[in-house]
């Protein structure tokens, strides 16, 4: 499959020095790419350079073959890359319905917005069932799913999910991962950054293990998950 998003020899960091070192990464069109790695490996930095919040010092980033380096976050959003951040990002006193509508705030075509709202309601029943309730009244998992629904309002080609399972109980976590799988089955390309390597790689068509700003290992998600060294280092398996 062709790479929808390509990072080529990307070097990026903050004032204190580089975090990513000549990083190469390809996100397959139609797949789920999961990046795992310890704290400080550079997972969040990848998301920041892709969404335009951080400009890489060296290297190229291409989306559908065109460079997106130097574009504003808004321009990148309009090209079809949407990010669901790690922290809660809903507007708490606004209703579920209003929150989902906010996802297409920059869209002017009302008929298109209405159609997407319909599609989102079909895909995420919680949006229809709890539409008039304040977002703050939902559970953590439901809020995360409403965030996914909001992200789909712009009909993105690539959905970036930053630690979607963070702070969720095991049952809710499995619901959230099931929702991610359903989004992918519906044709969305997913780039997932996940601390929970077992769940993330178990879901992924492509797994990437990041260490000190470089790709240490990559391959099919299950293959990476079953790699003995990775199991020992990240999954707590005994040798």
């Amino acid at each position: 499959m062709a790479g929808l998003l390509e990072l080529e020899r990307v070097t990026a960091g903050y004032g204190g020095g580089d975090i990513l070192h000549e990083l190469d990464l390809s996100v397959e069109d139609g797949g789920i790419t999961c990046i795992v790695g310890p704290n400080g490996a550079g997972k969040s930095t990848i998301l920041r350079v892709v969404s335009g919040l951080l400009r890489p010092r060296l290297g190229a980033i291409r989306f559908r073959g065109a460079s997106i380096v130097g574009l504003t976050p808004r321009a990148i959003l309009q090209r079809g890359i949407v990010q669901v951040p790690q922290e809660r990002s809903l507007f708490p006193t606004m209703t579920v319905w209003e929150n989902v509508r906010m996802g297409a705030y920059t869209e002017r075509d009302q008929r298109l917005i209405d159609r997407r709202l319909e599609e989102v309601c079909e895909a995420f029943t919680v949006v229809r069932e709890r539409r008039d309730e304040p977002a703050a009244s939902l559970s953590g998992g439901q809020q995360k799913i409403v965030e996914f629904a909001r992200a789909l309002m712009l009909d993105p080609a690539l959905v970036i999910l930053d630690e979607p399972s963070m702070g969720l109980d095991p049952k809710t976590r499995s619901t959230v991962f099931e929702t991610i799988r359903a989004m992918n089955r519906a044709g969305r390309t997913i780039l997932l950054v996940e601390q929970n390597a077992r769940s993330g790689l178990g879901l992924a068509s492509h797994g990437v293990v990041l260490e000190s700003g470089r790709v240490r290992l990559e391959g099919d998600g299950p293959a990476v998950l079953n790699n003995p060294e990775i199991s020992r280092l990240y999954l707590g398996a005994t040798a």
Partner: peptide, 22 residues
């Protein structure tokens, strides 16, 4: 209105409102 929705978003979190295009 859409304008009103934007105002409510500002009330909840002005920075997030800016991030979604308000």
């Amino acid at each position: 209105s859409k304008f009103g929705l934007g105002l409510l978003a500002i009330r909840d979190d002005e920075d997030k409102a800016l991030a979604v295009g308000v």
